[in-house]
Design a protein around this nucleic acid. Structure first.
Lengths: 340, 340
DNA sequence: TTGTACGCGTTATCAA
DNA sequence: TTGATAACGCGTACAA
C-alpha cells in the first residue's frame, strides 16, 4: 500500500480510503490511486484488514460428517446455492466438518472463537461444545438449515417435512391403500420424527390404526441410503401381510428398494406404490419414474444466507425464528391404486 | 493473550510460544498457561497470527461454475476427500467458483493475491487472469485435479480416461460390436478429447474405421447430464443404421438415455449395450444395472492434497508433473454381445 | 528457559 | 478532502 501511495503521490491512509471506502475520496485522486494500484498489481491484504476491523468475511458451513454425501445429493446443491448468495454479499464460504469426535468439535470452535469466521450455517443437530467453549455462546450469528433448531434459539430454515408426508400419505389413502411400509433414515433424527409423524397424522385423520404402517431401517445413517433400501427389501420379503404402499425418506433408499423388489417379481405401481423424499433429478428416469417430494434446497440456501447476513448486519433480527419453505410433490408413475 | 499471561504470571511472548510452539517452553509453565487459557476460554486469533507469519492456513478449491453439480455426483466426494486430508494437515477448505465472467475471476485473484489462501486446487481448465494479475504467477502452489494441466506447468492429478475408454471399447469390439454411439459432454473439453480419443484408439487397434462411431451431444455442459441423454435418445431414433453399443461420458446421461430408449421398445443389453463413466452408486440399481467406469475420486483428492502440501512445505517438488490414478471398470448387465 | 520490543498491513481517529 | 499516527493480536529476534 505504501508503494501505491508513493506512486500516486498521496498518503497511505488515502489509498486505504480510496480502495475500501471509495465514496469518501475525491474522484480524481481516486483515479490516480486506482491506476497506480493496477500498475503495481496491488491487492489489499485480507488478513491485515480483517485484523484491523476485527471482522472476517468468511462464513462457515458446518456439515455433519455422516450425512455428508448422503441425504441424496442434496448437499452439493445446498453448497452451490449458499456460496452463490454469499459471494454476492461479499462473503466467502468455508467448509467445516462436524464428526462425532472431540477433535472436529474443537476445530470448529477454534474457527469460531479465533475470529476466522463471521457466521455459521449449520446442518447438524449438535452444536459443538468442549471445555466450556460452546458455539452457542460464541457470539457468532448462526442459522440452522434443513433441521429445525429453533428450540435452541437458532434461526432455522426448514421445509414442511411433516405436512408434505402427511399430504402424500393422505393421497395414498385416498387411492385406497391401507397397509404402508415406511423406510426410515437415522432413527430419532429430526427428519425421521417429522416425516414419520406426518404418516401417523394422515392415518389418524382417516381414522386408521397406526399399526397399518410397518417401519423398516433406522439403524444406518444417510450416507448409506442405498444400503437401507436393499435391507428393507429383505425386510419386506419377510412380511406375511404385504403393504401396498411404500413411503421412503430419501430417493436413494427408494431407488435401491425398488430395484430389489422388482427382482422378486413384484411390479410397481401394480403391486406396490412408491413415493420418496428429496426430489433428485434421477427419479424422473427410473423405471417406473419415481414420485418424490422435492426439497426446495436452493430457496432454503438463499433464505439461510439472507437470515445470516441480516443477523450480521444487525438488521432487525427477524422475530420469526422458523422459516418454512414448502416442498412440492412430484407425482409420477410409481404411484397408483392398489389391486383390489 | 495478555489476560492469559497475567493470569499465568508469565510474559505474553511465553504464552505465544506455549500455544504455537509448545516444544520451546518448560513443561510446568506450559501447564500453567494452558490452564489459564482454558479458564479464560481463550482462543488465539487466526488473522493476527496469519498476518504476523505472512501465511494463511486456507486452501481454496476452484470449481468451474458450470460443472458444479454435474459431473455426476463426483464433486461432493471430491470435496469430502479433500477436506478430510486438508484438516489433517492443519488446513481449512474454502470454496471458490469460477464462472465465465470477469467478476468471478477477479474474486479468485483477490483471494490469491490478498493473502487469503495458501494454495489452490483447481478443477477448471481456465486459470483466472485479469488486468495483468494471473493465478499462474501469484506465487501460490496450485494443483489441478481431474483435468491434465501439466502443459501449463501445473501438477495434475488425473485418471486414465483415455486408456479406460479404450479398454472398454476394445471389450465391446471383442464381444462383437461394430457400430458405436458416443455420448459426448462439453465438446473439446479435456475429458471429451481423452475419452473420445480412447474410442478411436480402440477402433484403430482393431483395424476398424472411425466412421463406425456416431457422436451425439457435445453442446451442453455437464450440469445438464440428464438432458444430454434425453436429446441423444431422439438423435438415436433418427439413425438408419443403429449402433449396438453406447459409450456415455457420464452416468447421468447414460441413465436418461437408457430410460428413453427403453420406452421405444429397445431392450438393454439385448438390442443395445451401454457403458458409462463416473461410477455413481446409483448405477447398481438401474434396470438393467449399468456398467460404468469408476473414477477414483477419493484417491485423487488425497493425492492432490499431498502434492499441494508438499509444494507448500517446499518438500522436494516432485518432478513428475502428472499423477495418474487408474479408473476401474465395473461390468454389469447393461453390456452383452450384439444380436447377430 | 523466559522477557522485551518491534513490526506484520491495514483502518480509524483526529487534526489540518 | 487529505495526512499523520496509533492500534488491531500475534510471533520472533535478541537479550537476559
Amino acid at each position: 500500500m505504501a508503494d501505491v501511495a508513493r506512486l500516486a503521490g498521496v498518503a497511505i491512509s488515502t489509498v486505504s480510503r480510496a480502495l475500501a471506502n471509495p465514496g469518501r475520496v475525491n474522484e480524481k485522486t481516486r483515479a490516480k490511486i486506482n491506476a497506480a494500484a493496477r500498475q503495481l498489481g496491488y491487492t489489499p491484504n485480507a488478513m491485515a484488514r480483517g485484523l484491523r476491523v476485527g471482522k472476517s468475511n468468511i462464513i462457515m458451513i458446518i456439515l455433519p460428517g455422516s450425512l455428508y454425501y448422503g441425504a441424496s445429493q442434496v448437499i452439493p446443491q445446498v453448497l452451490q446455492s449458499i456460496n452463490k448468495s454469499l459471494i454476492q454479499g461479499g462473503y466467502n464460504l468455508m467448509i467445516a466438518n462436524l464428526d462425532r469426535d472431540e477433535v472436529s468439535e474443537r476445530h470448529i470452535l477454534d474457527l469460531a472463537f479465533g475470529g476466522s469466521v463471521r457466521g455459521a450455517i449449520i446442518l447438524s443437530s449438535k452444536l459443538p461444545e468442549v471445555d466450556g467453549r460452546s458455539l452457542a455462546n460464541s457470539g457468532l450469528p448462526i442459522v440452522s438449515m434443513l433441521l429445525d433448531m429453533s428450540d435452541a434459539g437458532l434461526q432455522s430454515v426448514v421445509t414442511n417435512d411433516r405436512e408434505a408426508v402427511r399430504d402424500v400419505t393422505a393421497e395414498l389413502i385416498r387411492l385406497g391403500h391401507r397397509r404402508f411400509f415406511y423406510l426410515a433414515g437415522p432413527e430419532g433424527n429430526y427428519h425421521d420424527v417429522e416425516r414419520y409423524g406426518g404418516v401417523l397424522e394422515a392415518l389418524d385423520a382417516a381414522g386408521l390404526s397406526e399399526d397399518l404402517v410397518h417401519r423398516s431401517g433406522g439403524h444406518l445413517d444417510y450416507q448409506h441410503g442405498f444400503d437401507i433400501g436393499v435391507q428393507a427389501a429383505d425386510d419386506f420379503a419377510e412380511l406375511t401381510e404385504k403393504p401396498t404402499a411404500v413411503i421412503a425418506t430419501s430417493d436413494d433408499m427408494a431407488i435401491s428398494f425398488v430395484s430389489r423388489i422388482q427382482r422378486t417379481g413384484l411390479s410397481i405401481p401394480g403391486d406396490l406404490s412408491v413415493v420418496s423424499f428429496d426430489g433428485s433429478p434421477v427419479c424422473e428416469f427410473c423405471s417406473p419414474p419415481l414420485s418424490t417430494i422435492k426439497q426446495p434446497v436452493e430457496e432454503m440456501g438463499r433464505a439461510a444466507v439472507d437470515l445470516l447476513l441480516d443477523a450480521i448486519d444487525q438488521r432487525q433480527t427477524t422475530a420469526t425464528v422458523r422459516t418454512v419453505i414448502r416442498s412440492s410433490l412430484i407425482l409420477r408413475e410409481s404411484v397408483g391404486s392398489p389391486k383390489s
